[in-house]
Amino acid sequence: MASSYYTNTLHVSFESVLAMDNPGMVSMFKALTTSGLQGFLGCPAVIYEAALIDFFENALVRDGVVISTVAGKLVEMSEELLAETFELPMEGLTDLLDIPKDLVFDAQSIVSFSGEPVSISGKRKEMKIEFRLLCDIMAKTISVKTGSFDAITQEKFLMIAGITCGVKVNWNRILFNILKDMVTPGSRQAKGYAIQISLLLENAPNLELGDSSEFPSSKILTEKTVHRYISLNDKVGGEEVADVPRVKRTPVKRAVSKKRPAFAAVDEPVLKKKRTTKGNPVSSKDTLEMVVVAQEAVPLQMIAPTTAAPTEQPPLPKRKSQKRKRRLVLSSEDEIVDSEAIVGGTSVEQELAVEHAFEEQKIDDVDDIIQQILTDTA
């Protein structure tokens, strides 16, 4: 689309900006007027988009003249036509590198924001606000460069130095050479001059250009737009930026996932889970009254037979099994006795009494069993 030819272009309404109440800006725009660029930067802002597309698609350079076909008709643009239309100066330096070095050094101090000479390879923020705007005009409208406009290049600074120090420059030759680079195949020069080419085509005889469109008002430098530019860029400078305190960032605590196990310290012992076995529940009473069996071997005590006459016992039922079981018998002194090791008639009676008590009574309480054994034995 034709809008790509004037996306970054800045046009100037000199009548408006020269009436501003800003000495720095007014002085800069007066320097532009003195340089002879007022007619080129302040011409009527009219755009013929269809004609612009035809012009750049068919344009070429022949014998130092730019020719093209627009709406089926041949159009020629010469250096003289450019100077006559925009009242550009045709005398002065044709190469900006010929500007005296002492003037370039003076310009480095004049445009400086801090008072120290700016670096030609530095940043635009090193300049005063009015010269930042002048740098934008030179980059976007005169030299028509693409990419970052914040960096200061040698070409842009030499243009600023020539305008600021009042050096006579043949702007007509410089601008026409840029136009030729725009239509030269393989050139890296960006296409621009949309307003100026539209005006040249409008003055061409017997040429139908079609509908025109107005140039965006936001890109025309007036008192209002310049004040907006100042408000957006005034605080961008070396000293002011350095005074702004930096905001410390608060470290963000990362949430620890509950699923991830916490690592134990190296010195802390690792607790092992105790194995538990399933079994029948034991009552608290049984647990408290159970006899603790020693781990070491305990010798069996022999109980001597007593001479006392045995008491009469009721007849006992016959034992169903002939196999004798090894049982532990609790004596009256709460000691463990082996029933097979007991010798004598009284020991047999004690064994039968114990067996009878277990089979008939079937009492779970240890205290009752012991009491029954003691009673039967007596």
Rank of each mutant, 00 (worst) to 15 (best):
L199P: 01
D368L: 11
A297C: 07
Y48H: 14
G210K: 07
I373V: 11
D21L: 04
T276F: 15
L201H: 04
M90D: 05
L316P: 02
S3H: 12
I363C: 12
E79A: 07
F131L: 02
A161C: 05
E84Y: 06
M182H: 04
P245F: 01
G122K: 04
L134E: 02
T225G: 02
Q189K: 13
I120E: 11
S198E: 03
A204F: 14
G192V: 04
A161Q: 00
L232A: 15
G122P: 02
Q108T: 04
L200W: 05
K323H: 13
R249L: 14
E57L: 10
V337M: 08
L207S: 04
S321P: 03
Q301I: 14
I373E: 01
A262V: 12
L133E: 02
G186A: 04
I373L: 13
A161V: 06
I160R: 01
K274F: 12
E126H: 09
S257D: 15
S321K: 13
M28V: 09
E15P: 02
N280Q: 12
L37G: 05
D106N: 11
S119I: 01
V293D: 08
F263S: 10
M138F: 15
R327C: 08
S284R: 12
E359T: 08
I160K: 00
E289R: 11
L10Y: 14
G42V: 06
A45I: 00
I152F: 07
D136H: 09
K273V: 10
